[in-house]
Write a protein that binds this DNA or RNA. Structure first.
Lengths: 178, 178
DNA sequence: CTTAGTGCAAAGCGTTTGCATGCGA
DNA sequence: TCGCATGCAAACGCTTTGCACTAAG
């Protein structure tokens, strides 16, 4: 039932504690980046995050964004993803103490990401069945495939290809041969 | 029960078919790269793969390695991983028609990867519970944590730190201060 | 004979680093 | 005041690209 405000508060607290524990400083830049990352649950690239902060009137350097994101990841407040391999890293907030696992549907055609929360795929369940020789911290699940949008498009294109290659096989209509 | 030889044969066949279907050429470089990738089930980086081929007396350019790996991924014969985010991409063979899912244990301390085959985490089981709006192709599971080797090391370091900071608090033994 | 594939070198691009300055504790 | 954090620009490293040459079909 946590509201976004609750989540942000919890995150700020966790960051403050982490920084203190590590003897690091609680700078306004770090707070601002945390706030912006937690303002939504989208995946953000470093430069997107910077652009957002910029349009908020908050100007900071890319290196600061990168270093802070690294801090957030170490503090367990953010997670880094490399979805395609070609595309740049994307960062995602981690809601403190949230028990549910969630995984990512990655469309290999358009790169769009959707998220699925699935309690049956919780960290606990996945990590439980491990050997004692590995101490799991968290897990990530990626399902690669085709999103419905691309499926539709691909079907449309296929149809058109058949229409034009089949010549007059089906005297239907070339419809829009554009 | 497939032997490595069987697997390689199947992979070669699948590649040949894929290339024919796409109107692409069956060059010796592509075969060599496929063979080398399937010679073991390790994760390989592009330049490692090239080095291996090099030591086999097979010299080819890095760009060829990259472009061929891309082809193999598209043909469903290889998979690309970006484990840490910082480290370069690693490639892994995909055994044709192998039903079992396997996931990766990634040590966040040393970067070492181990693989776990787990039939209860098969693609089928994971993808079954999706909406109809996404057509899954394959999935990847990463469990991040600490491997036993690093756990041991970290415990050792922690102990040493306590020993030296705690002064003579517990007059036990520094045991092996090595 | 045609044209996709290869090799080489250079470009590209996300990310990191070095260093001078600024600011939190 | 002390030393970590920031900003800038340059460096870095993996990957891609452009182009001339080679070879598969």
């Amino acid at each position: 039932m946590a509201t976004d405000a609750d989540i942000l508060t919890a995150a700020r607290t966790q960051l403050t504690q982490y920084l203190r524990r590590k003897g690091m400083r609680r700078t306004p830049e770090r707070i601002a980046i945390l706030d912006r990352l937690f303002a939504g649950d989208r995946h953000l690239q470093a430069d997107e995050l910077r652009a957002l902060l910029d349009s908020d009137g908050y100007h900071l350097s890319l290196s600061t964004v990168y270093s802070t994101l690294k801090v957030l990841v170490e503090a367990g407040l953010a997670r880094m993803h490399r979805f395609g391999g070609e595309q740049p890293a994307q960062y995602e907030r981690v809601v403190p103490d949230s028990p549910a696992g969630h995984y990512h549907l990655v469309c290999t055609a358009c790169g769009r990401i959707s998220e699925v929360t699935d309690s049956s795929l919780s960290l606990r369940q996945i990590t439980r069945r491990h050997y004692s020789s590995f101490e799991p911290a968290y897990c990530m699940v990626y399902v690669y495939g085709t999103c419905y949008r691309c499926l539709k498009r691909m079907r449309r294109e296929q149809r058109r290809r058949l229409d034009s290659s089949g010549k007059t096989r089906t005297p239907h209509s070339p419809s829009k041969p554009k």
